[in-house]
């Protein structure tokens, strides 16, 4: 986060002025999901269940992981019907 601002520099009424994407939750992670495109059938379930909007999928191509934010919960790997996602340390 940038330097803390003074009361004259922030909007009134307590309106948040920074998008949360700037806050990187990726460092919460112990294990990271790695998608094996050989096994992936693009069913989209990992995208559907990810609580952190951290599976990026356009509906056509293979899904990818937003490692800046993925918290490593492992839901995607657990739910993947073809076991195409592996949780890897780091």
């Amino acid at each position: 986060m940038s330097a803390l601002r003074g009361w004259k520099e922030i909007p009134i009424a307590g309106i948040p002025f920074e998008p949360a994407v700037k806050y990187k939750t990726g460092d919460w992670r112990v294990f990271r999901p790695v998608i094996d495109n050989e096994k992936c059938i693009k069913c989209g379930l990992c995208w559907m269940f990810c609580p952190d909007s951290s599976i990026i999928w356009d509906g056509d191509n293979f899904p990818t992981v937003d490692y800046e934010h993925c918290k490593g919960c492992g839901i995607c790997a657990h739910e993947c019907p073809t076991k195409a996602i592996e949780m890897v340390r780091g």
Partner: peptide, 22 residues
Amino acid sequence: HERGFTGITPGHRLCAGCVAGT
């Protein structure tokens, strides 16, 4: 994806695995 819209964006601080986000 085309709209860049997810409703809630990444960077929220719900616990890892909290399906409230889902």
